[in-house]
Simulated assay, not measured.
Amino acid sequence: MAFYVVQLRFDLAASDRRMEVRPAHREYLTELKAAGKLVAAGPFTDQTGALLVYDVADEAELRDILAKDPYTPANVYELATLAEWEPLFPIS
């Protein structure tokens, strides 16, 4: 397994559409967390984007997960960062 960090940059012009889709997005994240695929997630306090940490087999699995996120077809974000991450301290 590998850890990946994803930073989303929200399309501020699409805020209303993002708010409509957000319940489905958060439900999807809850399912990923329960399945052990999502380590941490949350929006930035200024609501310009979000940071997510995934524990997946590889980048292909992560991209599949992102493609299935309700935010993706709603086109409410830009992928600012997608990088494999090596934690310095263990994640509990």
Rank of each mutant, 00 (worst) to 15 (best):
D16E: 15
D16H: 12
D16S: 14
R17T: 15
R17E: 13
R18N: 02
R18G: 02
R18H: 03
R18E: 02
R18W: 03
R18A: 04
R18F: 03
M19H: 08
E20T: 10
E20C: 02
E20H: 06
V21I: 15
V21F: 08
V21M: 11
V21A: 12
R22G: 07
R22W: 07
R22E: 11
P23N: 09
P23L: 11
P23H: 09
P23R: 10
P23F: 10
P23Q: 11
P23S: 10
A24H: 06
A24D: 10
A24I: 01
A24S: 08
H25C: 12
H25I: 11
H25Q: 08
H25A: 14
R26P: 01
R26A: 09
E27K: 13
E27W: 04
E27P: 02
E27Q: 14
Y28L: 04
Y28H: 11
Y28I: 08
Y28P: 05
L29I: 01
T30M: 01
T30P: 00
T30G: 01
E31W: 01
E31S: 10
E31P: 00
E31L: 08
L32M: 03
K33E: 14
K33R: 15
K33V: 08
K33Y: 13
K33M: 11
A34T: 12
A34K: 15
A34W: 06
A34Y: 05
A35R: 12
A35N: 05
A35V: 02
A35D: 11
A35Y: 00
A35G: 06
A35S: 11
G36N: 06
G36D: 08
G36T: 06
G36H: 04
G36A: 09
K37Y: 08
K37W: 04
K37T: 03
L38K: 11
L38T: 13
L38M: 14
L38P: 10
V39E: 05
V39Q: 04
V39N: 02
V39R: 02
A40H: 01
A40R: 03
A40F: 04
A40Y: 01
A40P: 00
A40E: 02
A41M: 03
A41V: 10
A41R: 05
A41F: 10
A41K: 04
A41Q: 07
P43S: 15
P43W: 01
F44P: 04
F44K: 09
F44A: 10
T45V: 11
T45S: 13
T45M: 09
D46N: 15
D46Y: 03
D46E: 14
D46V: 03
D46T: 04
D46Q: 07
Q47N: 15
Q47K: 12
Q47T: 06
Q47H: 13
T48I: 13
T48N: 14
T48E: 14
T48H: 13
T48L: 12
T48W: 10
G49K: 05
G49D: 04
G49S: 09
G49Y: 07
G49R: 06
A50Y: 02
A50W: 00
A50M: 05
